[in-house]
């Protein structure tokens, strides 16, 4: 079997008495979209936070490209190639869309302790950043401050940033949320192609998108993965229907 890009073993995290992550095992293989679904409050975002390093797990291991992530902060994991988007967009609000992406380009090029050369005149930053905005369809909005973009556009911008990082795995937390049907459709198409660049762990509520995109699905309920497998197996799993899909239908 191919080595997974991302490998999570027996991950546990409590918030007080709440077992928000309760013995999760999960992996992400090259070339795939692995969808993580589950009801609100199941602990999906908290799992993404632990993988990206913004929250520390209580126990268990996270391995990325074969390396144990223990002791590495968010910035270190990002520079190793873990690119993420946030459920609630997290951008530099005063900076233009372009400058938000340029930040990722500059991070990828090495340390930021360079004090003199103006970034706006640096084609090695602006050109790749613009190219990424073009890929996600935001080129026309490149000069707008992130704060003035629509919900959906902010989502696209976060994805452009993750692309600019040259990520080796993507963690996307509900990228479709707040997008109209048109936006969801075009993003679905885009993500479908993106898996060839790097595998995607996709948290998503939009079931049309999930069934259209996912190679595998895992279902998280109260911090536990109650089922994991191919799309059809999950669709027909009685426990999943009861715990999640039944409720959503």
């Amino acid at each position: 079997m191919v080595e997974p890009v991302l490998e999570i073993r027996d991950l546990r995290k409590n918030f007080g008495a709440l077992k928000v992550t309760d013995g999760v095992n999960l992996d992400l293989r090259p070339g795939e979209i692995h969808a993580l679904i589950g009801p609100n409050g199941a602990g999906k975002s908290t799992l993404i936070h632990q993988i990206s390093g913004s929250i520390r797990q209580d126990s268990g291991t996270i391995r990325f490209l074969g390396q144990d992530m223990a002791g590495l902060g968010m910035a270190a994991r990002a520079s190793l190639g873990l690119g993420r988007s946030f459920q609630i967009s997290s951008l530099a609000p005063e900076f233009s869309a372009l400058r938000n992406v340029m930040l990722a380009v500059q991070a990828r090029q090495g340390p930021s302790f360079r004090f003199f050369r103006p970034v706006m005149a640096d084609k090695s930053l602006t050109d790749p950043a613009m190219a990424m905005l073009e890929r996600v369809g935001l080129a026309a909005r490149s000069n707008l401050p992130a704060a003035e973009l629509s919900h959906g556009e902010r989502r696209q911008l976060e994805i452009a940033i993750a692309l600019a990082l040259g990520s080796k795995a993507f963690l996307f937390d509900e990228p479709m949320a707040g997008m109209g049907p048109e936006g969801s459709r075009s993003l679905t198409k885009f993500l479908g192609g993106l898996r060839r660049e790097a595998p995607i762990l996709l948290v998503e509520h939009d079931m049309d998108a999930v069934f259209a995109l996912a190679d595998r699905i895992s279902v998280l309920v109260y911090g536990r993965i109650i089922a994991s497998g191919k799309v059809d197996d999950i669709r027909n799993d009685p426990e999943v229907r009861r715990a999640y899909l039944g409720e959503a239908a």
Partner: peptide
Amino acid sequence: QNATRLSAVG
């Protein structure tokens, strides 16, 4: 503006 954003790009 947003320290989390900076961390997220590495």
